[in-house]
Design a protein around this nucleic acid. Structure first.
Lengths: 258, 258
DNA sequence: TCGTGTCGGATTGTCGGACGATACGTCGCG
DNA sequence: CGCGACGTATCGTCCGACAATCCGACACGA
């Protein structure tokens, strides 16, 4: 089965606006430009690249959209660090479009949460512990309001994420988090004992972090997530259904390109 | 500490090109447009939105860049499913820019790999097992070529990822994978017994998948990753150094906007 | 001195129009 | 029937232009 003729790749020239974006991106990634450093104005880039302003603008938009460059209050362009949130939003959208199921979310979330809590038990700073404590106290005060509790639950897990001191993990975890959050409120609405159980789990997680007891942390993380799953099912949802519908209802209006 | 005056939010109007992007995105995410379905031509969108073509183009670029719309061979625009690779590339870049360390990569990678292999032991199809077997055989034949082995190692783990049948996990795992891959070659170059050990681990992982033995899979995944870490350190690298340098050397030329 | 109104330059967002290149469908010819 | 020429549609790129806004400078008055 020798090939008689050598095959050619599909020919395709890269459009100029992409070349512009790649050129700037390479310079940033190479470390030659640090965050905060200004990129030229559009007019300057036009001169440097020798293309039209429209072309430059299309190229810049891509990087701006990715968050690796940003407009300062001056309106001038500057290198910047991409925020996790933006990335997570993209990933979230992709998962919705691919119609990933809640079961996939549950299984992946479990693995990620366990690793996160373990990191948190090892690396949490006193300030972070303090913030979690404060979060718990606020939760106590709004225990009857599912939306507020769900909101604070999200915040609590974000705090644990930060405390894990592992950015790779955080970036991996955030999308699942974004997808779980909207359902938490739904679960709390259907399961009366949901909020107290959630609060108790948070207390135990914080306790584990304070004791720096990874096993205890994992135990309660597991329970906490299983609570969510049981509540989800008890609320009449099927774990094998795709994520989309429930998620979209709570998609913030301007979440798109932000 | 009551505030005397009520503060205003920072005022900011959304530019038209973003509104265009958001409008189209919402329609896609809502499910009203399915993948493959054509969006109008630029001229049509100009008429519908009542803005200039340049504006439409800037908006379209963003969605095109995200991979949720795509140009067909016709050059016409159509809704499409974002590919994991593209998302992973973004996340990867973000991690490099944030100067995440190899230790974070190692810890997160461990958690993700363990979960992935567990999923694979449960869900791998015969075809996927076959593909892994074939990958192992190819690896045997190029055992002296670090670059080739590293390449096949990446492929092997991608196969396991697919076999896990968990897209959330896959999306979470891919960025770490992309970052680990370049270092594998470096490790193999410095550690003579690296390639055979890697091959053996792959064999054992495949064996575990065949037996559907999750514990065995986890065991070998753990060993496999620890091998990588030890090799990494033995090659003279510090686990606490940021990822950038090593990564960028192997960044493909056109990886940027692709 | 400090706050305020004004002005001009710089920059961006948006616009309208234009051209060449390419993909596709059609049609006529052999 | 096969095949090449031709016209149309669409995109990538370019050009020039204008209003809105931001910034800095400057003068003015309390």
């Amino acid at each position: 089965m020798t090939e008689a003729v050598e095959k050619f790749r599909r020919i395709s020239s890269t459009p100029a606006y992409q070349l512009v974006a790649e050129a700037i991106e390479r310079r940033i990634l190479s470390g030659r430009m640090r965050p905060g450093e200004p990129i030229g104005t559009e007019a300057e880039l036009v001169k440097q690249f020798g293309v039209n302003r429209s072309t430059v603008r299309e190229g810049i938009r891509l990087l701006e959209h990715d968050g690796i460059i940003q407009r300062q209050p001056n309106r001038r362009l500057a290198v910047s660090l991409p925020h996790y949130e933006r990335l997570a939003t993209r990933t979230t959208r992709a998962l919705v479009l691919h119609e990933a199921t809640f079961r996939e979310l549950y299984e992946a979330g479990m693995a990620l949460q366990l690793a996160t809590i373990e990191g948190a038990t090892r690396h949490a700073t006193p300030e972070q512990v303090e913030a979690m404590q404060e979060n718990i106290e606020r939760t106590e005060r709004v225990l009857d309001d599912p939306a507020a509790v769900a909101e604070l639950d999200g915040e609590f897990h974000a705090l644990i994420g930060k405390a894990s001191a592992n950015r790779v993990l955080q970036l991996a975890r955030e999308p699942s988090d974004l997808l779980v959050r909207p359902t938490t409120e739904i679960v709390l609405r259907h399961v009366k004992e949901g909020a107290p159980r959630l609060l108790h789990a948070h207390r135990m997680l914080l306790d584990a972090i304070r004791r720096r007891d990874a096993d205890l942390g994992r135990l309660w993380a597991r329970r906490h997530i299983n609570d969510w799953r049981k509540g989800f099912e008890r609320a009449g949802h099927d774990l094998d259904q795709p994520i989309d519908r429930l998620y979209l209802r709570s998609l913030p209006a301007g979440a798109a390109a932000r």
